[in-house]
Amino acid sequence: MSSLLFGPWGWVILGLVLIGGEVLAPGIFLLWLGLAALLTGAVVGLVDLGWQAAALVFAGFSLVAVFAGRLLTRRKDEEPDPATGLNDRGRRLIGRVFRLEATMTGGEGRIRIDDSSWRVTGPELLAGSEVRVVRVDGATLVVEKA
């Protein structure tokens, strides 16, 4: 019985259960642990290891798999495509020129973009002045005189 639990088939079953858990509760984390368990099953099948050594192999494969998975998924998730500005409307506005709705007082004002009014910060300018968006600070656009 213990050879089944700690043998190569036990690791393969654990890997398949973890990958199945990823399907039921997606989050990408269980996928990497499942792959590490499958690799551990392959190693235990090739080299007769005790359960303690197999657990250490699993821990090592888990660390490598999780870090590799993080590197693979980070680039897509953390940086929106600057060309499309998808999910980052403010970034699409950088470099564009707009007219102030009202005179900027205290370094703050508003501009109208399509059907929205945006808060802006920058130099004191009169209403109707053209301003260029230079960066985004949260929901506020930072502008300069165009």
Rank of each mutant, 00 (worst) to 15 (best):
S2N: 13
S2W: 15
S3M: 14
L4R: 03
L5S: 07
F6R: 15
G10L: 14
W11A: 08
W11K: 09
L16C: 13
L16P: 02
L18D: 07
G20A: 10
G21N: 13
E22A: 08
E22Y: 14
V23A: 07
V23E: 01
V23I: 10
V23T: 03
P26K: 10
I28S: 09
I28A: 09
I28G: 06
F29W: 11
L31A: 10
L35S: 00
L35T: 01
L38C: 14
L38Y: 14
L39K: 05
T40I: 07
G41T: 06
A42G: 12
V43M: 07
L46Y: 08
L46F: 12
L46R: 07
L49W: 11
G50W: 11
Q52R: 15
A53P: 06
F58K: 03
F58M: 04
F58P: 02
F58R: 04
F58W: 10
F61K: 12
S62L: 01
L63G: 11
A65H: 14
V66A: 02
A68I: 09
A68T: 11
R70E: 01
R70K: 04
R75S: 00
R75P: 00
K76V: 04
D77H: 05
E78A: 07
E79V: 09
E79C: 04
D81F: 14
P82H: 09
A83F: 15
A83D: 11
T84D: 06
T84N: 11
G85S: 07
R91K: 05
R91S: 05
R91L: 02
L93G: 13
L93F: 15
L93R: 15
I94A: 08
F98Y: 12
R99S: 05
E101T: 00
E101G: 00
R110S: 03
R110V: 04
I111W: 09
R112A: 10
R112P: 04
R112L: 08
I113Q: 13
D115E: 12
D115N: 13
S116E: 10
S117H: 03
W118E: 08
W118Y: 14
R119A: 05
P123R: 06
L125G: 05
L125Q: 08
L125F: 10
G128I: 09
E130P: 12
V131P: 12
R132I: 02
V133E: 02
V133A: 02
D137I: 09
D137K: 13
T140D: 00
T140P: 00
T140F: 04
V142E: 01
K145F: 02
A146K: 06
